[in-house]
């Protein structure tokens, strides 16, 4: 198979990833819509998960339980299966791109975006092996949908070799660690956003303010304690990986740019992201900052991650400019 054919198939798989993630998104949204809260007695699922309190205003969580097929749950399961397919398809897109270019497929924005979409999906499906993450499906498949969409429609560029500055094995180490960390942070931020939704629903219900949509969302995600624990686990795993990505970048910079740290905009924003997530970990151990405030810090960290990828690469002048389009 020639390089051109490999590249073409890689692009086909990327488009397939777009289709699959759209379908998964649809099924996850459907599972949300079709779940019922305690207000409609018809399909009340029975809570089996130990120790889970009711969260919002007496309405019990509709977290799907074992052996109790409910309409919403079935759709969510289909969404989960599609997510596994999505991971496979995006992996194929990444691998074929690398084969067609004869190098590690992380040399431009298009490749970062596709690899990143794979990373997020992989984090999601791997997390699903340990715990029930179907509630995150909407956010994750929505994010991947946007990511791959932007990649194939805006960022796409033909396969080409890299400039000599990028001829180093550090490319595989540093950029991969950074992209996979982004996947982890996406997962963690999804959990934090869910936590903040539940928090908002709880607070507004307490004071009697109207809160329909947030309450609807809050009834479909786990309780705050579990959301907080899940977010913490994901961030605790991703933070060392991000630290390693920054350190690897510094080691590479020493070899390529004769200094390990120069406050290049990308270096600066990687530092900002690191500090914000360090603050998140600190906040969870500080009285008065646990819970919602910590969740907000992690959301700001994720905004910095998105800024670092989209804005700094394209708009800011610096040594990382060849990571642009």
């Amino acid at each position: 198979m020639t390089d051109e054919m490999l590249s073409l198939f890689s692009t086909y798989f990327a488009y397939a990833g777009l289709v699959v993630s759209t379908l998964a998104f649809g099924f996850f949204i459907a599972s949300f819509s079709l779940s019922r809260t305690a207000d409609t007695p018809a399909e009340q699922p029975v809570l089996v998960t130990a120790g889970a309190p009711s969260d919002v205003n007496g309405a019990e969580s509709v977290m799907p339980s074992l052996g109790q097929p409910v309409r919403g749950q079935r759709w969510a399961n289909i969404g989960m299966s599609l997510s596994w397919l999505q991971a496979g398809v995006l992996l194929a897109a990444v691998v074929l791109r690398g084969l067609s270019a004869h190098r590690w497929p992380l040399g431009n924005m298009y490749e970062f975006a596709i690899f990143g979409a794979f990373g997020v999906t992989a984090a999601f499906v791997i997390a699903s092996l340990r715990t029930d993450v179907r509630w995150l499906g909407v956010l994750i498949s929505g994010f991947v949908l946007l990511d791959v969409g932007v990649a194939v429609m805006v960022l796409f560029t033909e396969v080409a070799p890299l400039v000599p500055a990028l001829h180093s094995y550090w490319l595989a180490i540093h950029v991969t660690a950074a992209v996979l960390s982004t996947g982890g942070f996406t997962l963690g931020s999804g959990a934090s956003l869910a936590y903040l939704a539940v928090e908002r629903a709880r607070r507004r219900t307490e004071v009697g303010q109207p809160v329909r949509f947030t309450r609807w969302v809050a009834a479909r995600v786990p309780d705050q304690r579990r959301l907080d624990a899940f977010a913490y686990r994901v961030h605790a795993f991703t933070f060392p990986l991000w630290t390693f990505a920054v350190v690897a970048g510094a080691i590479w910079a020493q070899a390529a740019w004769h200094r390990y740290w120069g406050w290049d905009p990308k270096e600066t924003w990687s530092f900002v992201i690191w500090v914000v997530y360090a603050a998140y970990l600190h906040a969870r151990a500080t009285a008065g900052w646990k819970g919602a405030r910590a969740a907000w810090i992690s959301v700001w960290g994720f905004i910095a991650v998105l800024f670092n990828f989209f804005v700094v690469n394209i708009l800011f002048v610096g040594l990382h400019s060849y990571s642009g389009v």
Binding site: W269, F271, V272, V275, A278, A279, A287, W289
Partner: peptide, 18 residues
């Protein structure tokens, strides 16, 4: 708490340099 606030301040302070 101070460490936390200083961390957030450090992040904010680094941004103008970019």
């Amino acid at each position: 708490r101070t460490a936390l606030l200083l961390l957030l301040l450090l992040a904010l302070a680094a941004i103008p340099g970019s």
